[in-house]
């Protein structure tokens, strides 16, 4: 739902790096987005195409990697991955009697790298 402001920031950062590296064209951009984020891949690309029009990043492909959600058991501090369907988990796999967890990963919004010419 809020892809547009996120994409505007993304394009700004991509253009800075493109200029810094004297890129003629950006071919693809690899993103790491946490599973907890509700950003839609398809809409990210659509907005990206719109916002990047007329820049060196025009027509670049967004390669989106989803980072899994990691929770930490509040009893034994064990960290483990959970799928969105399993969230919140029933039991900690290590101490098994704990039912409380802190979400420690899954909210990322990173640009990892980009492929340029």
């Amino acid at each position: 739902m809020h892809e547009l402001p996120v994409v505007k920031n993304l394009v700004e950062i991509v253009l800075q790096h493109a200029e810094m590296n004297r890129a003629e064209r950006v071919v693809s951009i690899t993103l790491e987005i946490g599973e907890l984020s509700d950003l839609e891949d398809e809409w990210m690309q659509k907005y990206f195409n719109f916002v990047s029009r007329g820049t060196v990043a025009e027509e670049a492909e967004l390669v989106i990697h989803r980072c899994p959600v990691v929770v930490q058991c509040s009893e034994c501090n064990r960290r483990f991955e959970v799928s969105l369907e399993e969230l919140p988990p029933d039991k900690c796999p290590a101490c098994s009697n704990c039912e409380k967890f802190n979400v420690v990963k899954g909210k990322e919004f990173y640009i990892r790298e980009m492929k340029v010419i």
Binding site: V6, N9, L10, I13, V14, H17, N21, A23, V27, I29, L31, F109, Y110, I111, R112, E113, M114, K115, V116, I117
Partner: peptide, 22 residues
């Protein structure tokens, strides 16, 4: 990271948080 007949791609590490500004 690769070549085709005319162009050579370069891979740039960005490692930036998209929401860092906010």
């Amino acid at each position: 990271i690769g070549k085709n007949s005319r162009e050579e791609f370069r891979l740039i590490e960005v490692k930036e948080d998209i929401l860092a500004d906010n």
